[in-house]
Nucleic acid binder design. Structure first.
Length: 261
DNA sequence: ATGCCCTATGATATAGGA
């Protein structure tokens, strides 16, 4: 089974890219983030014509997550239990479903903006509630493979950004953020790390500005944390860097994980 | 070649992204 996660940066604006990518890569399950449209506006008919069911959770201009599957889509849950609000709103940043016997979550972790911004505390709180969710789900998952995939907006190590010296005042690399990943691992999850490219880290994001992609000024911030029953089935994991090339692409590339039987 | 920001919105600017 082939499972992917991709911050698509507007599912409506990216529809043709998405459909072509589904045909080329043939994933069984796709976790999408940053739909940037309301649930009703997600182009589920076009996605269905490509062979995929869709469970979406969006609310318009920002955020929005979905799970696409061609191997069944059951027990859909929207939002984390006790998911924190930002400015009075529980934002659409999490959706879970069971697809082909595997439980997956598609997550869009808050950005944080600046370390001193209230959004940063929101990010840490959100990740703490993710940890709580994972702790209770791992405890009852048994042999069912379970994974939390998505845009974590955290680079796990200094090597996961193109130049750590550029991040001295930035989010995504702070000890507080990285501690939330450690906490997530401590409930019984391991990170499924995509294999490196021949010449570099498998980054998953490159800014649109300042030739970041051609210069490979990237960040590895789209991550997958998995239980042992999931991780032991992983036969390969890679970043589909080709999806970032050319005009009109998302600024993120998909992470693709191959599960054996 | 991988190429000089992008998206959605009460839009002719603005917020957010990371």
């Amino acid at each position: 089974m082939r499972i992917a996660t991709w911050n698509i940066n507007s599912v409506t604006s990216r529809l043709e890219h998405l459909l072509a990518w589904l045909e080329r890569v043939e994933p069984d399950v796709v976790c999408l983030q940053e739909l940037k449209c309301a649930t009703d506006a997600v182009p589920i008919e076009s996605i269905a014509a490509a062979g995929y069911e869709t469970a979406a959770h969006g609310n318009g201009r920002w955020n929005g997550v979905a799970i696409l599957s061609r191997v069944g889509l059951a027990d859909v849950v929207r939002d984390l239990p006790a998911q924190p609000e930002f400015e009075g709103v529980i934002e659409p940043r999490a959706i879970g479903a069971t697809c082909g016997g595997v439980r997956v979550w598609s997550l869009y972790v808050p950005n944080g903006r600046e370390p001193s911004h209230p959004h940063f505390q929101y990010k840490l709180e959100w990740l703490a509630r993710l940890r709580d969710t994972a702790a209770s789900e791992v405890a009852v998952a048994g042999d069912v493979p379970l994974a939390y995939l998505g845009d974590y907006n955290i680079a796990p190590t200094d090597a996961d950004v193109w130049d750590i010296s550029e991040f001295s005042e930035s989010t995504h690399v702070t000890p507080e953020e990285r501690a939330t990943l450690t906490a997530l691992a401590q409930v019984g999850l391991v990170e499924v790390v995509p294999r490196p490219l021949k010449y570099d880290i498998a980054y998953t994001f490159w800014d649109y500005r300042q030739l970041a992609f051609p210069k490979n000024r990237g960040m590895r911030i789209d991550l997958a944390y998995a239980t042992k029953p999931f991780a032991t089935r992983v036969t390969d994991a890679w970043v589909d860097r080709d999806a970032r090339k050319g005009k009109g692409t998302s600024d993120h590339a998909p992470v693709v994980i191959e599960l054996g039987p």
